[in-house]
């Protein structure tokens, strides 16, 4: 569906193909839910982009007080990657019609996601234990806000995951197509939130001053 090419059409002229009405509407046959999900992910992307920019914007001030990042974050990142891998596996098993593997992949994905969320909470706890949990420090507040919002998105994903699992376990009650779409959409969602997390983690929370370096290169700092 080439949006910009369509914009050059001249609708007032009779159809070049000689068959007005034969020309289709250029609607893609992708399922609505998938298109809707992609749109939603764009919105989510904007949300985290703005948060990242806010973080960076705050960093360039002189009174910025960075906090030591909890080491647990590395482990959590690994968990989220495994969760994504689990779904990926489920998706490819579904294409091969190996439903036992699909189930295993789904269970793995769910377990690792829960592990990730719990791990993030523990990471907050680590900050408290270190005695740096000062809400008035923007570095801490932004950390909590960003990881919190990301975690909420994972929690929301778990709801979709539950509904997908339901469809997979009771496959005979649903159209096969719907089951497949559910798995596809779940996988896309996890991959996307993993990508968002990797950017957030890499730039802001890995304990290396990557964002700082980036800002210096761009001449903001």
């Amino acid at each position: 569906m080439n949006f910009f090419r369509q914009l050059t059409e001249k609708p007032w002229l009779p159809d070049k193909n000689g068959a007005i009405g034969m020309r289709d509407n250029n609607v893609s046959d992708t399922a609505h839910a998938r298109v809707g999900l992609k749109m939603f992910l764009i919105v989510v992307g904007v949300l985290f982009f703005l948060l990242t920019v806010s973080y960076a914007g705050r960093m360039v001030y002189e009174d910025w007080r960075p906090v030591p990042q909890p080491w647990l974050m590395w482990q959590n990142t690994a968990m989220l990657m495994l969760a994504s891998a689990g779904l990926h596996w489920a998706q490819s098993a579904m294409r091969r019609d190996e439903w036992n593997q699909v189930k295993m992949g789904l269970i793995g994905a769910g377990a690792f996601t829960i592990g990730f969320i719990v791990g993030q909470l523990l990471a907050w706890q680590q900050l408290v234990d270190k005695g740096v949990f000062e809400l008035t420090n923007p570095a801490v507040a932004l950390f909590i806000l960003i990881t919190g919002l990301h975690g909420l998105h994972m929690l929301g994903g778990l709801v979709a995951w539950g509904r997908t699992a339901d469809k997979v376990w009771q496959r005979d009650k649903f159209e096969l197509n719907k089951v497949r779409q559910s798995i596809d959409n779940c996988t896309l969602y996890w991959h996307f939130l993993l990508a968002v997390w990797l950017v957030l983690f890499g730039l802001l929370f890995s304990g290396n001053d990557n964002m700082g370096i980036l800002l210096t290169i761009c001449g903001f700092k």
């Binding site: 369509q6 059409e9 001249k10 007005i20 009405g21 509407n25 609607v27 893609s28 298109v35």
Partner: peptide
């Protein structure tokens, strides 16, 4: 957005 992109009837191109 999804309705405009996906649910147009046959013949309803974007520029129509």
């Amino acid at each position: 957005v999804v309705t405009v992109l996906q649910s147009r009837t046959r013949g309803m191109t974007l520029m129509r």
